[in-house]
Write a protein that binds this DNA or RNA. Sequence first.
DNA 1: GTGAAAGCGCTAACAG
DNA 2: CTGTTAGCGCTTTCAC
Lengths: 338, 338
Amino acid sequence: MQSEAEDGTQTGAMITLTDVARAAGVGESTASRVLRGHGSFSTKTRESVLTAARSLGYVPNRIAGTLASMGSKLVGVVIPSLSNIVFPDVLRGANTVLVGAGFQPVVAVTDYDPEREESVIESLLSWRPAGMMVAGLEHTERTGAMLRNARIRVAELLDTDGEGIDIVVGFSNRKAGRVSAQHLMSRGYRCIGYVGHDLSLDLRAAKRFAAFRAALGEAGLSIIGEEIIRAASSIEAGRDGLARLLERCPDLDAVYFSNDDMAIGGYFHCLAHGITIPDRLAIFGYNGLDVARSAPQPLSTILTPRVTVGEIGARLVCSDGPSAVVDIGFELIEGATT
Amino acid sequence: MQSEAEDGTQTGAMITLTDVARAAGVGESTASRVLRGHGSFSTKTRESVLTAARSLGYVPNRIAGTLASMGSKLVGVVIPSLSNIVFPDVLRGANTVLVGAGFQPVVAVTDYDPEREESVIESLLSWRPAGMMVAGLEHTERTGAMLRNARIRVAELLDTDGEGIDIVVGFSNRKAGRVSAQHLMSRGYRCIGYVGHDLSLDLRAAKRFAAFRAALGEAGLSIIGEEIIRAASSIEAGRDGLARLLERCPDLDAVYFSNDDMAIGGYFHCLAHGITIPDRLAIFGYNGLDVARSAPQPLSTILTPRVTVGEIGARLVCSDGPSAVVDIGFELIEGATT
DNA sequence: GTGAAAGCGCTAACAG
DNA sequence: CTGTTAGCGCTTTCAC
C-alpha cells in the first residue's frame, strides 16, 4: 500500500529525493535545485517538482544534505542548568536569532560540572555543528582544545572576566560585585552580610562575591557574617540562609545575596517575621528577575540583559566577522529594599 | 602542519575514521567496530585503534554515522515557550532521561502558535529524529499527519483531555479546573472571580477555566467577574489584572488565576494594598511553582508534576512498547491563601 | 577476527 | 536550463 494525499502526507516507505525526481520526470539534481531554490530551472519544472514533492509528502533528509554539503545548520548551546530561569532566558534569545537565520539549536546541560561540560561538548561536536555557544569562560583544558580545534564559531556567554576563545558576550561579574558593594556602602550600610549558594561550581557567582568582598575591604569594611548553603540557589535556600545568618549575626543592617532567587527568599523571610525592609535590614540581589521587579517592594538588584546576551551571541556565531569581546554591561536597579 | 597531541587534540584538517584506521594499520570497518565496541576484535587491535584515535584527536562524525545506519540519536522537543519556567522544567526531565539513553534533545519553540508548531515540527522532522516530544494534544491537521507518517515515537505532554497520536503523558486540565472550583466552594467562597491571560493560544489554561466555570455552574454559582489580559501570563499581569478586577467587583471573596505567575502577582497586589489573605480575599493558582511554595503565605494551588512528565515522556519515547496514555495526576496544595 | 565493497540520501561540480 | 557522475564519512553485509 502506497497511497498519496493532497494534504502533504503519505503512507508507506520513506520518500526520498529520487522518488520526487522520478515522479516529476526530472533528474535528481534538478529536483534538489528546485527544492532549495538554488541554481536555475524553468517555471514548468519548478511546478512539477513542487507538486510531486507535495503530493508524495516528501520530507527532505537534512542528515544526508549536511553530509553532502559539509555544512550543518545545527548550533550547540551548552548551559549549566535548566532550573534557574536565567539560562532559559539566554536560550530564548539565542533561539530566536538562530531560527531566524535558519539554524537549529541543540541544547546540552552541564549541571555546573566541568567534566560533564567536557563530555557534552564532545558529544555535541560529533554533530558537526556550525557553531557553539557555551556559558562562561572557564573550561577544562581538553574542552578548550576541542573547541579551538573544531574550526567553528564559538561564543562564550555571560562573563567577560577572563580569556575567551573566539567570541565573548556578556558583562563583568567582578564589576557587578563591586558595584553592589558600592551601592550598599553609599546608602550608609556598614554591617553587611552575605547569603550564597554553593560557589565551588557557580564560578560567576564566586567572582561577584570575591569582588564584593574586595570592594568592602578597600573601604575598610568587611563581611560581618556569611551563610553559604551547600546546594543550588533557590528561594527556599535564601529564606533559610537568611534565617540562620540573622540568628548568628542579629546586628546586620544589609545582606548581599548570591542572586535574586536567594534574595527573594530573604525578602520572604523578612515579610514572614515582620523585619522591616530596608530600615531594619536591606537586601540586595543579582539578575533582575520578574518576581523581584513586581514584588510589593521592588528588589534592589542588578539587571542582567540575559536575553540580549543570547541574541548577540547567536548573531555573532552566525556571522563570519573577527573574534570579539562584547561587554553589554548591566543595570543597577535601585529598588525599595535598600 | 599536522601535529598531534596527547590530550586528544589536533591541528590541521578534520580527522576521519579512515585516518584513524590507517594510523592504526587496520581496515576502516575494524576501526569502526572498535570505536563503537560492536562486533569482535582482538585486544591488540583494540589498543592500536584507540591509541590512534586519541592521539589524532578523532571526533566521530555522527552525521555520517546516522546516514549510514539509518537511525538517528536525536529527539525533537517542541514546547510553546521558554519564558515560563514550566516548560524548561519539562525539558529538564526529558533531557535527563534522553541523555542517559544516549539521545540528544533538539528543542524548538512555538510561541503557542499552531502554525509555527507546524513549521518547526516539519523542520525538526528533516533531521530524522528517533522520536518527538510535543506539548499538548491540539495540532493543525497537517502537523498531525506529519507526526503520524514519520514512523517514529511521538509523545504528547501535559494534557490528557483529548485524542493522542501515540504516547500521551500528563494529567487532565479539565479535572484540575473542576477540583480548583470544588476546593474554593468547599471553603465557603461564593463570590468568585477569575484573572487570566490570553487563552486563545494557551489551550490548556482555557480547558481549566471552562471546567472551573462549569463546576461552579453545577453548584448554582457563577463567576462574578473576570479580567482577561491580552498578553502572556506574568506576575505583573496578575497584579494589574487583580487590581482592575477588584475595582469593578469589590465584593469578590476569592479569585481563581490562570496560573501561579498570575496568582503570585495577585498575592503581591494584596500585600501591597493591605488586603488580608484569605479573610478578605482568597487566591488560587495553578502549577505549584517554587515561589508560590516559599511565599510567607504558601499559595493554594495545584502542583503539576512537570519534571516527571518530561521524564516519563522521554522514557516512553525511547522505548518500543505500545501506544499508551499515562495520566500521572496532580496534587492539590492547600496553602494559606484559601 | 578482519577487510573489501556497496551503499545511506543528498549536493556539487561538470558536461551537455 | 538539465542530467550524469562523484563523492561526503560512516555502517554493514559478506566473504576471507
